[in-house]
Structures are given as structure tokens and as C-alpha cells.
Computed example of a mutant assay.
Amino acid sequence: MAENSQPPNNDNQQEIEELISSLPKEKWWRGSGLTLYQNFWVPSDFIRGVITLRRHFIGRDSNILLASKPKTGTTWLKALAFSVLHRAQFRPSVANANHPLCSSNPHDLVPFLEIMLNGQPAGHVPDMSGFTDLQLFATHVPYHFLPESIHQSQSRVIYICRNPLDTALSSWHFWAQANLEGGAGDWSMEEFFENFCKGLDFYGPFWDHLLSYWKASCERPERVLFLKYEDLKEDTARNLKRIAEFMGVPFSKEEELDGVVDQIVEMCSLSNLKELDVNKTGDIFGYENKTFFRKGEVGDWANYLSPSMVERLENIMKEKFSPFGLYFTLKKTS
């Protein structure tokens, strides 16, 4: 049995439990909470998985990790990356009813590591040493939370980010809907916005999370691909080819001439995904599948955020991002 598949000893489990009990905590929505771990607010429900991932997960050269802050295009990136990686096995076409996207939510096809590990005893990591093909995983943790084995291996990380105005809006819609379904009452945009600006949200602060991957992509561009949601929306085909090349499975000239790139773009579009029966019913992580597919627009913030909110976020962006050469062009929906 591989070393990382051994059950954890009781001392290790006890140490992790004692650490968790000592960490600062804040109340959140639906009776859940946030736990402050290494200066980031981690969902309390997943804190064991986050600690196990950081301490014990064995990164391998075959790993491809899709990283993101929640509500920044995660579901879309999962669908795109899965379809690219498995295009030889599953013909990418809206007419192919046998494609896994027609029967499984993208979050089922590309599991979150911290959620997968959260269901294990503290410190226990399933043995995945027998996998030799490319392995596609996802995570919401900041870059420096990734285990040293991932940093030292040849594994690749694709990070997708979104401008903070649309991220805040999309997050509020998602959590407000979850609150409504959970019977926890209304959660005003103003209340959520205040927490967002203070960094009190899932895997926040937003700024530090994004910068952790931006800096890594500048230092190691061959290992960390930094994508902006806005760029992916503007030219999905071009950026899809960037994703495929970075993953080590570039499109051939024949595939491009055959329209494979365009077929994946169409199949993974929000308009197509949200109309699939699998994404209209059922749930995952305790949320209805349909809540993962809203508008996906760039600039929708202009319809919801007040001028004072916009000014506040713009000032934070300038303070946090501009010293590192990172900028967002803020567009408005018509």
C-alpha cells in the first residue's frame, strides 16, 4: 500500500481537531460558518479537507488543477477543461446525448480536492498512485495552501478570476438563493457587500486569493495559467486553445478545421449547460444544480451596485492590484 494511503494515526487526527477548535470563527449563512486559517476564511464545513490537502496530498506530474475563488467561472472552466481533456473519448457536440456533461454536473466530473478529502478521516488521503493518465481536479484554496508536493512536481494549475464587482454580485445572488432555499431569510446586498470588502467570505479575502495566483503565474508561467473570465467570454475559442496547449493536449490543425474547438465552445456555453436536464434538477454540495447557472454576464454589476459601492471597490482594486501590474477593464451591460 502506498504511503499516502495509510490511515492516519490517532495523534495526527487529534492534533488536527485541536487545531480546528483553536481557530477563530465567524457565523455565515444557513447556520454554517467560516474558520480563519492562515489568514483566509475557509468554510467551516470543509476545514478538515483543506488542512488535509495542504499537509498530506501527494501532487503528481499528471495533476491538472483548476483553481478559483467561488463565483468566478469555476463551473464553466470545469466543463471546458473536461471536454478538452476527454475529447477523443467523448465527441464534443450538443447533439451527443452520451457526453458526460449531459448526465453529470461539471462539479461531479471535476471534483474539488478539499471536498473530496473532507470526507476522509483527518489526515487520510486516498491512494491515487495507480493513476497514470492526466488527472483533473479543482480547488478553491489560495495558491500557497497547495501542498509542497504540487509545487515541486510538474503538475499544472489553471486559475480563473473575475472582476470583483461581478464576483461580488454573482456571489450575493448565489448565497441569497441558498439562504432562501434554506429558510434563513433575506440577506441584503449591502450586508454581503460589506463582508466582501472586509474579506469575510468563502476563501476570502478576494484580493489576497487572486494575487496569490497572479504572482505565481508571473514567476512560473509554464506551471500556472492565469485566466480572466472577461477574456474567456470575449474570445472563448482563442482562450480554449490556450487552455488545451497548457494542459499538454493542444488541438491539431485537423481538429480545428473539423470545428472541434467551436463544438466545445458551443457545448459548454452557459446557454446550453443551463438547459440540460441534469442542471435543472438535483443538487450537489447541498445546493440545487440550477443555482450554478445564472446570467454569466460581464458588467451586470452596473444594474445592482450603487455608485458608492463601485467607487469603494475601484479604490480597493487600485490599492491591492496596481502595485503588481494587475488591472481589470470594467464594462457595463447595455
Rank of each mutant, 00 (worst) to 15 (best):
M1F: 08
A2C: 14
S5G: 14
S5Q: 00
Q6K: 15
Q6L: 14
N10C: 07
D11S: 15
D11L: 15
Q13E: 15
Q14D: 15
S22D: 03
P24K: 00
E26D: 12
T35Y: 10
Q38Y: 11
W41A: 12
F46P: 01
V50T: 10
T52N: 06
F57Q: 06
I58E: 05
I58H: 10
I58A: 04
K69N: 13
P70E: 00
K71M: 11
K78Y: 10
A79W: 08
L80H: 09
F82P: 13
V84A: 05
A88D: 07
A88H: 11
R91I: 04
P92N: 09
A95N: 12
A97R: 09
N98I: 08
N98F: 13
H99T: 02
L101G: 05
L101D: 05
C102L: 02
S104L: 10
H107A: 04
L117H: 04
N118K: 07
N118F: 11
Q120I: 10
V125D: 01
D127M: 02
D127S: 05
M128C: 15
G130R: 01
D133G: 15
Q135E: 10
T139L: 04
T139A: 07
P142N: 00
L146A: 06
L146C: 09
L146I: 06
S149Y: 07
I150N: 03
Q152E: 13
Q154L: 08
S155D: 03
S155E: 01
R156C: 08
C161F: 02
R162W: 05
N163W: 11
N163V: 04
P164G: 08
D166M: 01
T167C: 13
T167P: 03
S170F: 08
S170Q: 03
S171A: 11
Q177Y: 12
N179M: 01
G182M: 05
G183H: 12
G185P: 08
G185E: 02
W187Y: 14
K198M: 10
G199Q: 00
G204N: 10
F206K: 03
D208T: 10
W214K: 09
A216G: 13
A216M: 08
R220H: 14
P221F: 01
L227V: 07
L227R: 04
L232R: 07
R238M: 07
E245N: 02
F246Q: 03
G248A: 12
P250Y: 13
S252Y: 14
E254N: 09
E255V: 10
E256F: 06
V261Y: 11
Q263D: 15
E266A: 15
S269V: 00
S269T: 00
D277W: 03
K280W: 13
I284E: 06
F285Y: 11
F285I: 00
E288L: 09
R294E: 08
K295I: 04
G296I: 04
E297P: 02
N303L: 12
P307T: 11
P307N: 10
E311K: 14
F321G: 09
S322N: 03
P323S: 06
F324E: 07
F324N: 02
F328M: 03
F328V: 04
K331D: 01
S334T: 11
